[in-house]
Amino acid sequence: MLTVPVRQLGESERRAVERLLDRDPYAGAQVAERVAARGLAWWRSEGRILGYGNRRNLESICWLGGNLTPVLASEPAVDAYADLLASEERLCSSIVGRADAVLGLWDRLRGHWGPARDVRANQPLLAVDRLPELPADPQVRPVRPHEVDRLFPAAVAMYTEEVGVSPLAEDGGRGYRRRVTDLVRAGRAYARFVDGKVVFKAELAVVTRRTAQIQGVWVAPEWRGRGIATAAMAAVVRDALIRVAPTVSLYVNDFNLPARRVYARCGFRPVGTLATVLF
């Protein structure tokens, strides 16, 4: 029997949730963006935010929607979340968050939710709060709304390469195209174009008052090995720090050594380790 029950949180506990998210601004960024945009009442229709701890001392939260994301989840919190979720059908497409919590959840849920398509157990979480010292590529800029058709094939290629499945599979890509279009309209998609084609791209996929989180970094295959990524990333980081948020963050697969070298040159430092379980 659980001595500290897991419960679904509502709008009355929003400030407690925000205080908790401020304690982990990088790993909890995706959840923080959703809370800031729609509050906690939104979870009733598009997801749930679960809390661990009594009402006077919220210790951890867990977002359950398209992704399952534990935030500041201790081992007892992981046990409590797993006890609840094991009785439910899996609806999420991934589990992502701090590695200890994600791998702990997966160890307890694999017998109920398995098998996973991939488990990425070591993804360094990096952040930077200073402008890069190295020169930025002046040709990297925010994508303009009329350039979505040029950006979209590169976005599909990146997603397929990174995740291992095509974003076009489920609904012909309509949902993914809406997401790409929204990022462009918000000034959060960057690219370098050569002869009308994208040779580098990246997005500020998550933006909070604490950080802008870069995802979707991609260099066209024929341009790899030419050394364009470092200056291109420096341009993205510079613009994001000046225009968007006080820090920039991202996470990367541990085996992607070329990307990790690029990020180190741009001033990123380790702030933790994430893990992702993909279904």
Rank of each mutant, 00 (worst) to 15 (best):
L125K: 07
D24Q: 14
R243T: 15
G225D: 02
G164C: 07
S94H: 10
R90K: 08
V148M: 02
W43R: 13
E46C: 00
A275Y: 13
R56Y: 02
R265G: 02
D149M: 00
H112G: 00
N122Y: 13
S94L: 12
F279R: 10
A264F: 01
S12D: 13
P153N: 05
P167Q: 12
M158L: 13
A77H: 06
W42K: 09
V180D: 07
D100R: 14
A99G: 05
G187D: 11
W42D: 15
T247F: 03
A27K: 03
P138R: 00
V217Y: 15
V31Y: 14
R185L: 11
V236Q: 09
E89W: 10
V262I: 09
T208S: 13
I242D: 09
N57D: 15
Q215D: 14
L84E: 11
G39Q: 12
G10D: 12
S45K: 14
V252P: 04
V180T: 07
A27V: 05
P132L: 02
I228E: 06
M158T: 07
L20Y: 10
G225K: 07
R243C: 11
A155H: 04
S60A: 15
C266L: 09
G39A: 08
Y251K: 00
L91P: 00
N54T: 00
Y52F: 14
L2K: 12
L131S: 13
W218L: 04
G216Q: 06
C62P: 01
R15L: 14
K197L: 10
V78L: 05
E18W: 10
M233Y: 11
T208F: 13
I214Y: 08
P246A: 00
R192V: 06
V236A: 10
C266Q: 06
V237T: 10
V244A: 08
N122W: 13
R108V: 06
D137G: 02
D129R: 12
N67D: 15
S60G: 09
A101C: 11
D24H: 12
N67Y: 11
P124H: 04
